[in-house]
Structures are given as C-alpha cells and as structure tokens.
Design a protein around this nucleic acid. Structure first.
Lengths: 225, 225
DNA sequence: AATCTATTAAAACGCTTGTTTGAAAAAATA
DNA sequence: TATTTTTTCAAACAAGCGTTTTAATAGATT
C-alpha cells in the first residue's frame, strides 16, 4: 500500500514568516518596548529561542519586519508619482496628485492586509512616534530621501513659492498624515460612533483632500501676505 | 557664637515636585514603558523608594504628572473660546478663532516651560500614541468632553454642514495637531536645516492656519459636491 | 527635652526581560 | 541508508523591573 506523503492538516507557514507577522501585529499594538520575545513566540506559535535563532536579536527582528512592511509602500509611492508626471507631460503634477501618490499607497496596503486591517496604519504611525533610538535612525533612512523627492516635486509645481515655505507646509502635511493614521483607531470613540474606522477608502480620500487644502491654501496665503 | 541655621546651598525643591518634573521629562522622551522608577529617582536626585512613598505606584505617579500638565491647557482653551464668543456677540466665532483657542494654549505652555522647551509638545503628543491602556483611558477622560464642546461650537459656526462632516473634519484637524506636535522635533532634519524647531510661535501659527484651511475647504467642497 | 509624625534610605523580594545553552528532532544530502 | 546540516525545544542565565520592608533620620508638637 502506497501512502501519500503525510501533510500537516494546517500547513504551517515557515517559522520565520510567522515570527515577522506576529512581530508586526504586536509592534503595532504595543510599541517596541511593549513587545516581548515571549509574546512574539506565543503569537507566532513558535519556540522562544526561535526568534533569536532566525534573527539574532529583538532589534534585528523588528528592523527586518519594518523594512519588509515599509519598502513596498515607498516603491508604490514612486510609481504613482512617476505615473502622474507621465500623465501631465511637460506640466507639473497638481498638489492633489502629488499628495495622492504619497498617501494612497498606505490605504492600498491597509486594504490588502485583510486580517486586522488597521494594524498597518498603527504600525506606520508607530515608527514615527517610537522613542527607541534605532527605530528613529532607520526610519530617517527610509524616509529622508523620499521627503527630499517630494520637496523637489512640489517646488516644480509651485515655482514662485520660497523653498522654506514648501518645507514648512510639506512638514505639516506629512505630520497630518501620520497623526491621522495614528489616531484613526480612535475615530469611533472621538466621534461618538458617528464615523466608523471600517471606511478605509473614505478616510484616505478625506485625508488626501485635507492635507492638499492645508498645503495649497497655506502656500497661497503666505505668498500673498 | 550664634550660627545661622544651616541652609543647603541649593535649596532643593520638595521631593514630590522633583519627582513629577523628572517623570514629565522622561515620559516625553521614552514613553511609559521606557520610563523606569529607577530612572525617575536618579533624574530627580531622590531615593528609589521615594516615588512609591509619595505616589503609591508608577501608574499613579504618571497619572498625577499628566493631570497636572494637561488640565491647565484645557482650562485655557475654554477661556479663549469663551473670549471669542463674547467678542463676536450673537455671531458664532470663525473657524480660525475656534482652532486658535484649541491649539494656541499648547504653544503658550511650550513657551512657558523654558527648560527643554519642546518636551511638553512631545509629552502631549505621547499621551495620544501611548499604547498603555490606562493612559488611553485617562486621555479619553480628559479629552472626550472638550472634543464634544468643539464639535458643538463648529456646528454653530457651520449650521448647514451635516454632523458627520463636522465630525470627520474635526477628527482630521485634531489628528493633524497631534501629528505636528509629535513630529516637530524632527522638523530640522526633515527640512534639511531650512526650518528650525526654535521658532515656537511660528510653528503654532502655521499649524492653526493649516488645520483651519483643511477644515473649512474640506467642509465646503464636500457640501457642494 | 521628650514624643510623635513624616520623610529618607538601603536592601531585598518576586517577577519579567532578552539571550544563551546543549540536546533532541527534522530535513537535507550523500 | 548513513551522514551531515538545519531547525526546534526546554531549561537556565544574568540583568532590570516595580514594589515592599525595615531601620534611620529629620521636623514638628507637646
């Protein structure tokens, strides 16, 4: 009698993968200091020593997870920005198109990660507010170049506006984006149930319009004063 | 020979006060989980047991500190709002006046706390992003009523706008405020040195204009679409 | 001056943390 | 099938955590 190769009923993903996913969930919920190797092991249904075996340390594990989650979003941002530039030919993209390319990819990733949808929003926002030094450093590495690029693009779109004004308003726009992502889970409480966190696309679209208005109107009012 | 009563060269503040101040600094910098009783004791130049003697527990110490820092800001907010209403008589205050009363008091407190000026901005922002449960609860207690009040005021100022729209845009405005406070210490890096964190008043004024624009334009564009 | 209360101080308690160890199990290779 | 490599697992490690205890000190009150 030939028996088929014994496959586990639930074909577990590789331990490495489960560890990273568990780290993402727990980091988003509890932050770096609130995340423990034991909680990761339990959440990933793995042994405590597994995380250190695969990644070497807690820091390395978290960095690997952050890199894996953030890089695709940045790639998509650049793609959308290029697409907008191609679409406009010689004209510079509008502020709305630029901020759309900056913010929309996060919404896409949130929608893609169907399980515990909002954890990614919390995660992205957490990387900005975490006081842990190495996370600050690495986030700067991930984001400083993309910030430079968007500043260039906005300077082209608003050629008469001083560099400093662009800097100020871009900073406010990015801060607003991060604040909105970080606070979104409190939307229901804050609005006494009137608005719901489930409306992912609506939140992203409103956010894009909000920062576009703040940016454009701020730029114009400061240059005419 | 009559000797004057021996006064310490540096008349130390009461231990209780030094502990609270040290807690504020360390909470702003490291968050709740990154703050330890031993670091507080060291920063306050006090004994480890002193904190538990005066406050009972770490939680109680942090709550006392947060309450002491946040309540005056909220009192000032209400005062400015009432002043604006009185100034306008029967007319409702403008969106700019309303958001001024919401945001300006934080700038005042930042300017007042001359030592390590920006720690208060970090502190306020941290209370919104800390994942620790009891901080979420207490922050909700501090802020839910004031949020309700501002929603009422904005509903009077924009009587033709649906409640849900007010809720959405107020949420975005508050989120932007918190994001800007949390991110301000990175302003210099983010703008490659073009903008400086020292310009407290400028930042606050820009922020007020930014959220006012985002709010008003968002309200108008959504009601005319 | 004597008594009582409030505060400070050092040491220890029980618990959790990230990390390491060494052997068992599984998988891959020959 | 035999051997080697990779991965899992339970147990333990040292260090740091919040908190408690017990004694010494300072300040006020009688």
């Amino acid at each position: 009698m030939i028996s088929s190769p014994p496959k586990p009923a639930k074909p577990k993903l590789a331990t490495r993968r489960r560890l990273i996913d568990a780290t993402a969930r727990l980091f988003a919920e509890h932050g770096y200091n609130g995340l423990t190797m034991r909680s990761v092991a339990q959440e990933a249904d793995a042994n405590l020593a597994a995380a250190n075996y695969h990644f070497g340390s807690k820091d390395a594990l978290v960095l690997e997870m952050l890199s894996e989650r953030i890089q695709p979003i940045n790639k998509r941002r650049l793609a959308l920005l290029e697409e907008a530039k191609r679409r406009n030919g010689k004209l510079a993209p509008s502020a709305h198109e630029i901020f759309h390319s900056l913010i929309f990819p996060i919404g896409e990733e949130i929608a893609r990660s169907s399980k515990s949808r909002w954890s990614l929003a919390q995660l992205v926002a957490r990387t900005f507010t975490e006081p842990v030094y190495f996370i600050e450093r690495m986030h700067q590495k991930f984001f400083s170049q993309i910030a430079k690029l968007y500043h260039q693009e906005l300077s082209l779109a608003f050629p008469n506006v001083p560099t400093k004004e662009i800097h100020w308003h871009l900073h406010l726009a990015v801060s607003s984006m991060l604040g909105a992502l970080a606070q979104h889970r409190r939307l229901r409480d804050f609005t006494e149930g009137v608005c719901s966190e489930e409306e992912v696309g609506e939140m992203i679209n409103r956010l894009i319009r909000f920062v576009t208005h703040g940016f454009v109107m701020g730029i114009n009012s400061s240059s005419t004063e």
